[in-house]
């Protein structure tokens, strides 16, 4: 799979993108708001700009170090595509869960999410899947709603359990 060098370059790319965003925002949004110049009272750009420059310098250093290391490209521990797939699917399921949480509410969204992750983990026993996902979702809701007075997302249908 990905070599440690590729991963390192992706991370450097990410940090580079972050500093690009900082400078772009300072040049556009900050200037529009009038907070890109002046003294410490009005200039909100000085500090993020300084850190972005510092990150930029470090990125150059790191790039130099990477280019030295480049010759000895070491492979990270070989990971099968299926192993990556499971993690990817878990993240995808979780992302979908967060997307639908506001709409359909905690009580309708949670058990299917847990069920799906357990399925991805390899559990195929349907009764076990159903019981444990409902049990986990409900028992956690009970602790937070009944003891800690947290109002979990109700969704557009206002689904809740009056404990």
């Amino acid at each position: 799979m990905a070599s440690s060098r590729t991963l390192n370059l992706i991370a450097l790319g990410f940090l580079f993108a972050v500093i690009v965003i900082v400078f772009w925002q300072i040049e556009t949004d900050f200037k529009e708001q009038g907070i890109a110049s002046g003294g410490p009272y009005d200039d909100a750009s000085l500090y993020p700009r300084a850190i972005a420059i510092f990150i930029g310098v470090l990125l150059v250093f790191q790039l130099v170090i990477e280019s030295f290391r480049g010759r000895t490209t070491t492979l990270t521990e070989v990971i099968q595509a299926s192993d990556f797939g499971r993690a990817g699917m878990m993240l995808a399921v979780f992302a979908v869960y967060l997307m639908v949480l506001t709409t359909i509410g905690y009580h309708l969204a949670t058990a299917p999410m847990i069920c799906a992750i357990m399925w991805i983990c390899g559990m195929r026993n349907l009764p076990k899947l159903a019981i444990s996902s409902v049990a986990i979702a409900t028992s956690f809701a009970f602790v937070f709603e009944a003891f800690l007075n947290v109002v979990l997302p109700l969704g557009i249908w206002n689904v809740f359990i009056p404990w």
């Binding site: 878990m90 979780f94 869960y97 967060l98 949670t110 999410m113 847990i114 992750i117 357990m118 983990c121 390899g122 559990m123 444990s132 996902s133 986990i136 979702a137 956690f140 809701a141 937070f144 947290v150 979990l152 997302p153």
Partner: peptide, 16 residues
């Protein structure tokens, strides 16, 4: 298989 979804859920409710 139980721990992972439970922790994800706990993180979600706790953060929410």
């Amino acid at each position: 298989v139980y721990l992972i979804p439970s922790i994800l859920l706990l993180c979600s409710i706790g953060t929410f």
